[in-house]
Each structure stands twice: as C-alpha cells, then as structure tokens.
Computed example of a mutant assay.
Amino acid sequence: MSTVPSARLVLLKDVVECRNGDSIRVTGLWKKYDAGIDLAVIQYDGHEVQVDTAHIDQIWPIEGDIVQCLGEVTEEATFGTVRMSARVIRIVNTLNLDLYEKVVQLRNSTMS
C-alpha cells in the first residue's frame, strides 16, 4: 500500500530551495492558466510557481483567486521558477496572504 506524503508548507519566495520530488503546499494568486498544455501560474510578491494541472479534474479558479496547491516538485528552479505537479488545488479567497506569510514563517522557524 502506498501513502501520499504530507505536503510541507512553503512560501512562494522559498520554493526555489525545494528539490525534485519534494511534496509541498504553496499559496498565491492564480495568475494564468493554459488548458492546452495543462499549465497554470500562481504568484505572490514577485515570486511564482508553474503548476502542472494534468492530474486535476475540477472547476478552475479565475484570475486573481487566492489558491493553495498541493503536490510534488517536478522541476527545480530554472531562472527563478519552479514547476510542480498538483494533486490538489483549492480556492482560499478568504485567506489574508500577508498574515498567512507571517504565520508560515513563524511555524517553520519553530520546526527547524
């Protein structure tokens, strides 16, 4: 029986430190989506992640929605951009991104 790894909370600005195969959870603004190649981009505060959506079968966010993507890193930082393969995408529009960033930084600093 295989298990799905727990996704580690990672801020978009820190995702460049992730390696292939890392299971991560990132949060940002849904910037664009290309259904022809199953690729979305989420961004926040000048940082972005490309999200492979080939395994997602759901209603898509619209540009500007705050989303959380859980999945695995499939391509390490190239020119500052990381690509991940999403297994879950959820809309979290009620989330305050500035406060969320502070909480994640605090949480990660106490877990180190």
Rank of each mutant, 00 (worst) to 15 (best):
M111I: 15
E101T: 05
H55T: 14
I62A: 02
I42E: 10
I42R: 04
V41R: 08
D65Q: 04
L106Q: 12
W30M: 06
I59C: 01
L39E: 13
L11F: 02
W60K: 02
G21N: 06
T110L: 06
D22K: 03
V82E: 05
T27N: 03
M84C: 11
I56S: 02
T78L: 10
K13M: 10
V88C: 12
R90H: 12
T74V: 13
G28F: 07
H55D: 12
G71H: 00
T53L: 04
R87W: 02
V82N: 03
V49D: 00
L39G: 04
K31P: 00
E72S: 08
P5K: 15
N93T: 14
C18T: 09
K102Q: 08
P61Q: 05
R83K: 11
R107Y: 15
T74R: 10
I91H: 08
P5M: 02
G71T: 00
D38Y: 01
S23T: 08
E17L: 06
S6N: 13
A7H: 13
R25E: 01
D57T: 13
Q43I: 14
E75F: 01
I37H: 13
A40N: 01
G46M: 00
C18F: 01
G36K: 09
S2G: 07
N20F: 09
G64W: 07
T81E: 11
W30G: 02
E63N: 09
T78Y: 13
S109C: 05
A77E: 03
Q43Y: 02
T81M: 07
D14E: 01
V15P: 04
D98A: 15
Y33G: 00
Y33S: 10
K102D: 03
E63D: 07
L97T: 04
A7V: 12
K13P: 06
T110N: 10
R19L: 09
D65H: 05
E48F: 05
S85Q: 09
C18D: 03
D14V: 00
V10Y: 01
E17M: 05
T3H: 06
Y44P: 02
V41L: 09
E76C: 14
I37L: 12
V26K: 04
A54F: 08
S109Q: 14
A86S: 11
I59A: 15
M84E: 07
S85T: 12
T81G: 05
V88Y: 11
A7C: 15
G28T: 01
V10S: 05
V10C: 04
L9I: 13
Q43C: 06
Y44Q: 10
R90D: 15
K13W: 12
Q68S: 15
E48M: 03
Q58Y: 07
T78F: 11
N96Q: 09
A35I: 11
T27M: 06
K32E: 15
D22Y: 13
G64V: 10
S2H: 10
I59T: 09
Q50L: 11
V15E: 04
V49C: 02
E101I: 00
R87E: 07
V4K: 14
I24S: 05
E101L: 07
R19P: 05
F79W: 08
V104H: 03
G80Q: 10
M84V: 06
S112I: 00
D98K: 14
K32G: 08
D98F: 15
C69D: 02
G36Q: 15
L70C: 12
A54T: 14
I42M: 09
I59N: 08
A77Y: 00
E75G: 10
E17W: 00
L95M: 14
V51Y: 03
T27P: 02
H47R: 13
P61A: 01
